[in-house]
Amino acid sequence: MRDPKWLKWVRIIGLGLLGLFTVLPIYVMITSSIKPLKDVQGDFHWIPTTITFSAFRDMWSTVPLAHYFVNSLIVSTIASVISVVVAIFAAYAVSRFRFPGRRAFSITVLSTQMFPGILFLLPLFLIYVNLGSAIGVDLYASRTGLIITYLTFSLPFSIWMLVGYFDSIPVALDEAAKVDGSGPVGALIRVVIPAATPGIIAVLIYAFMSAWGEVLFASVMTDESSRTLAVGLQGYATQNNVYWNQIMAASLVVSIPVVAGFLLLQRYLVQGLTAGAVK
């Protein structure tokens, strides 16, 4: 495709503006985290006049940030791993088998995306309280309850994306594995999963990110011991003082794992979308 001359300028200006819009809060987050408290309370300055790393030290004691961090890490890791395994099985069934109820299953799972979270927040809360006391496992205000909740949040998108991905893997490969003596599950493990690795990684990132960032259920379903970062970060603002420099430092620190992971693996997400979902 030959590009006209004016396109070059449109590209520079357009991408420049988008870049500016994108980077503005990130710039403020980084520069404010290295300012002393009095500099973030007064007038805003583009360039920090005094640089200090005290916010990165103090943020751990203002709120129990490390505790929240560990909670978020445990909840998001377990939820995303289980979610992906469950999604692989379901997607394999939908992609490779014709069974009565297949269409109904797909539609049901996907339509849960449409539900307003607020509709099932309170019922779920009641279920967890009652079910928890019935089976003797704490579901409400526990990491277990949060894990179960979060892993279903990413399931619809994960299944949908993996079905598209599995569909793009030739069935002949499965058949070859079956000739070699594998059953359908053997074919899934030996052929389909290795061939779909980019899609699976993409889904894993998505599931982890959605669990790491969820706020609504975290704000209702946790107590002090199971609190995650989503709620914990608001602790800096409910004190007498708003420690903006510590909020920015904490935001930066809690973002690094997901952003770094995402940027390292984003090409798999694009590949996964290209091979599966958007085709």
């Binding site: 809060p25 987050m29 007038d43 805003f44 608001q234 903006w244 909020i247 973002s255 997901v258 984003q266």
Partner: peptide, 30 residues
């Protein structure tokens, strides 16, 4: 650029949005 554009999507909501609320503060915001 591609990586940069994806950062807001990758950032946890609370980290990105809380930064915006700092930007939008009346007295001390950008």
């Amino acid at each position: 650029l591609r990586a940069l554009f994806l950062v807001p999507y990758a950032l946890p909501v609370y980290a990105g949005v809380i930064t915006w609320s700092f930007l939008l503060q009346r007295e001390s915001g950008l």
